[in-house]
Write a protein that binds this DNA or RNA. Structure first.
Lengths: 196, 196
DNA sequence: CCAAACTTACTAACTAGTCAGTAAAAAGCG
DNA sequence: CGCTTTTTACTGACTAGTTAGTAAGTTTGG
């Protein structure tokens, strides 16, 4: 048995995380059951409960696992030129998700559960803060270097995040990848109009 | 058009629609059960099944009921001056939802189920088309009257819809009504920058 | 009287989670 | 080293609860 007090310091079970990922993409969050994760895992449901006491624990660990990978991909953007860097970050947020529509669907489902699941809302909020911090830093850097107008960086960041989340939502709800493309174009228009 | 004999277009049971509305706001979509709707209705679960064969039928009828009311509220915007009308429409889309956060939460939950429920996706898609049509008409009217720049009206409309959906999503996921306010400001900035 | 509008009682399926037992690997030890 | 004990990583069977939906019988209003 795993001591719950050690849980946040213990490493996630990679095979179970992968199984959860596959089950989530296949069935969606609403129809995600321990049984289905166990089937992907290739073992019994009790084997899952051996590592994670409750379904909530498992899903919280899975969200950590997912968002950690997402943060890593954002962190890998290496250009320091503000204009180029901002465009690359927006690509990461709006172009890369096009590769994995099933995951985008499941992620919106989980996001919509944030008001009911404290563990979810905490993690999504923290993730949002991080991305906002990255965007704001680039914008402030650009303002300092004189390539961007001296605008309200906090608002400009939130505006871009709004466009990003709008594109993500529309791509899922309206079942058209074009939602992300429209958002990508709109984000660039916003940057051109407000920051230069 | 549509076959009027089709079951899903028969008149909804007002009391059941109201009960569904209350149950949805109280428990959210994920925990919405026939039993809970029946409790709000004040009758047995079988009484619900007397009017609606399946849960899916009931929810499809409820979505029709909800979206019809939403469309009516949009339709009530009466100004013909393009600039004023566009601002009033954006208020309707981004300010009015602030009055009912619980409904906004439940609506995002239902929207996130669109990829799995044909009945949902159909209705949300139709609703989106209608709002887009209204926005596009105003923008084209403004272009014709010379108060707006001669831009790509279709893209400008989609851009505004992206900002609207981004604000809605962020208000729910991040639990801050400020998400809608940021979106409202961003929408006006977009209009100012691109249409004038 | 009769049809519409129910109720009560039920079922079949599915859910998360528990429990007792087990095989094998690891650790302790003389 | 060789033997015992403990721990890890499970399995299979089970519980208790919830779900949508049904069937048969009952009340009620025109």
């Amino acid at each position: 048995m795993v001591d719950p007090s050690d849980r946040e310091f213990s490493e996630p079970n990679e095979a179970i995380m992968q199984a959860t990922y596959r089950a989530l993409r296949e069935y969606g969050y609403a129809d995600l059951t321990i049984k289905r994760i166990a089937e992907e895992y290739g073992k019994s449901t009790a084997a899952i409960h051996y590592y994670y006491d409750t379904k909530e624990d498992l899903l919280a660990a899975f969200l950590d696992y997912l968002l950690e990978r997402f943060v890593d991909s954002i962190h890998e953007v290496e250009t320091t030129d503000p204009e180029k860097r901002l465009e690359l970050l927006l690509d990461e947020l709006l172009v890369k998700p096009q590769e994995n529509p099933d995951l985008s669907i499941a992620l919106l489902e989980m996001r919509s559960q944030a008001p009911y699941k404290k563990a979810f809302s905490q993690r999504f909020q923290q993730n949002d803060e991080y991305i906002r911090y990255m965007l704001k830093a680039v914008i402030n850097h650009g303002i300092d270097e004189g390539v961007f107008e001296d605008v309200d960086a906090d608002h400009a960041t939130r505006a871009l995040m709004t466009i990003v989340d709008g594109g993500r939502t529309r791509a899922v709800v309206l079942d058209e990848p074009g939602g992300l493309e429209t958002a990508r174009r709109t984000a660039s228009e916003y940057v051109d109009a407000m920051l230069r």
